[in-house]
Write a protein that binds this DNA or RNA. Structure first.
Lengths: 95, 95
DNA sequence: TTTATTTGGTTTATATTATAAACATGTTTA
DNA sequence: TAAACATGTTTATAATATAAACCAAATAAA
């Protein structure tokens, strides 16, 4: 009960990013920004953190002439999310 | 989906405090400190915040000669917790 | 064509939060 | 009576989240 919650996931925006990627596997920067209603700056920072932690991978390329940042969830990211959800149950399951 | 999470509850320690109080209705400072493994200082600060928000009430008295701080959940606190849990489901329910 | 706007981000600055360390006020114990 | 303990609070610092400002390139408007 009340186990430590992964601080990387216990953040509204980072949790939303991972949740989104868990569901759809991979997504572009702009798509994530729209779905999460985050500002670009905030999103950029949080994607960096998730990437540095190995929870996602980031591939930068060009789509036509526009830069494109594609984010993909990793196995490590999936495992971390599952653990986080499980730990959270110790807080929110009431009986 | 991805609704704003109440910042007052989206904090590991404050969530643990509220979760504890939801389950047992009221508890003493020392008891909460033990159950949550928080430092006294941190706990003191977070109890203040929850109290200022009207999520809990705090009654100070003496148990014998020792000061005693009793925390009680309020209806507002219960409602906030329930909303938080519900909002969180938008993040962690995978389908 | 040159000015303004948009797109896709990054960097930097600021506000908020969490946390620990130090302190205050007594009480108990050696 | 001095040292250690209990119950907190206050204050200082570190970490985090977030927004604002910025950059570079492309496109649209004048």
């Amino acid at each position: 009960m009340y186990s430590k919650l992964d601080p990387l996931l216990h953040s509204q925006l980072r949790l939303a990013i991972i949740s989104l990627l868990i569901n759809i596997g991979e997504a572009e920067f702009v798509y994530i920004r729209e779905k999460t209603n985050a500002t670009g700056g905030n999103l950029s920072v949080q994607i960096d953190k998730l990437s540095n932690a190995g929870y996602i991978t980031v591939h930068k390329s060009f789509k036509g002439k526009k830069p494109q940042t594609l984010c993909k969830i990793t196995r490590k990211g999936i495992a971390a999310f599952e653990k986080y959800v499980n730990d959270l149950k110790g807080y929110i399951d009431i009986d």
